[in-house]
Design a protein around this nucleic acid. Sequence first.
DNA 1: TTGAGGATTCTC
DNA 2: AGAATCCTCAAA
Length: 206
Amino acid sequence: MTSALPAWTTLPRDFYQHHPTVVAPALLNKILVRDDGRAGRIVEVEAYAGDQDPAAHSFKGMTARTATMFGEAGHLYVYFTYGMHWGANAVCGEVGQGWGVLLRALAPLAGLDRIRAARPAIRRDRDLASGPGRLSQAMGITGALDGADLVTDDRGIRIVSDGTAPCPDPVIGPRIGISRAQEFPWRWHVPDDANVSVRPRRRLER
DNA sequence: TTGAGGATTCTC
DNA sequence: AGAATCCTCAAA
């Protein structure tokens, strides 16, 4: 019997030590894993690039909120917004750059009972983790996990590969929900994946 | 001390 | 289209 389930190998530090426009598409088809069995395949991401990027939290330099983003690559930057939602990023680049990749959507893969329990109002599975706030809620990510090391798995969250190739032909387009640098094509998602978040409704100009 | 705005989601 | 809901940061 030679066939076996492919091993889940944690992504190494140097996977993250590049520009977020490189790391972001490379993260498509990787798997976000919690130590309680919850896991989901990453199907939508966005890049944020520090002082090169007016839309990034880190654009104007480090603050108390963004300290993690300026730290070592491979850690989790978790932010709070709109008074109720958490967002999760993989820090990338070198220390001091403030670069990261926002995890925007997962295709739930394991621990579905726990994921559904974390999203009790949701009826369809494709709505469980389709959006940064939904993803964080589904996976139990809050500010308590800000700074967690995805490489050493020091706090029960990591990103692994199951051997699936990177998405060969991702959809590329503008980022969602930002007011500046809207023209940067720094969003990538797996084509036709039901879990990809959708812009609510484009506001008509004028 | 104040206030505007926010890497969103849900409901009406 | 509007509400919910509160933290962050710059400016006064």
